[in-house]
Simulated assay, not measured.
Amino acid sequence: MIPASWIPHRRADGEVVGYLREAGDDFQPMDLLGRPLAEPGDWSAAEALLDEHSLAWLMDAFLLAVDGADERVRVTEVTPERVRVKRDDLGAIGGDARFWELPVPDGRLRPAPPLTEWPG
Rank of each mutant, 00 (worst) to 15 (best):
L49V: 07
R21I: 08
W6S: 08
M59S: 14
A92P: 04
D13Y: 06
A48Q: 14
R21M: 13
R82T: 13
V85L: 11
R84N: 08
T79G: 05
E101V: 14
R108M: 02
D60L: 03
D70V: 03
A61P: 02
R87A: 09
L50D: 01
P113R: 07
T76K: 12
A38I: 08
L55F: 01
A56K: 12
V104R: 13
F99A: 00
V85K: 10
R87T: 12
R98F: 00
V17D: 00
I7F: 10
G18M: 02
D42L: 05
G41L: 07
L102P: 05
R10Q: 15
D31H: 11
E52P: 01
L109C: 05
G41E: 06
F99D: 05
R72T: 04
I7E: 15
P80K: 02
A112C: 12
R10A: 10
Y19D: 03
V75L: 13
G34F: 05
G95Y: 06
D51F: 00
E71M: 08
D96T: 10
P119F: 11
D25L: 14
D67N: 12
L58F: 00
V66K: 07
A69C: 10
G24V: 02
S44C: 09
D31C: 14
I93F: 13
P113Y: 01
G95V: 02
R21P: 02
L64W: 05
A23E: 15
R72G: 01
A23V: 12
H9F: 15
F99Q: 08
T116I: 08
R82H: 12
L20R: 02
D89N: 04
T76S: 15
E81N: 04
R21N: 02
D42A: 10
V73S: 07
I2R: 12
T79A: 03
A12L: 12
A45L: 01
E117V: 01
A97W: 09
P113M: 04
A45S: 13
V85A: 10
P29K: 05
I7S: 07
D60W: 00
W57Q: 09
G94C: 01
D25E: 14
E15S: 10
Q28Y: 07
S5C: 10
D88Y: 06
Y19G: 03
F62L: 00
E47R: 15
V17I: 15
A61V: 04
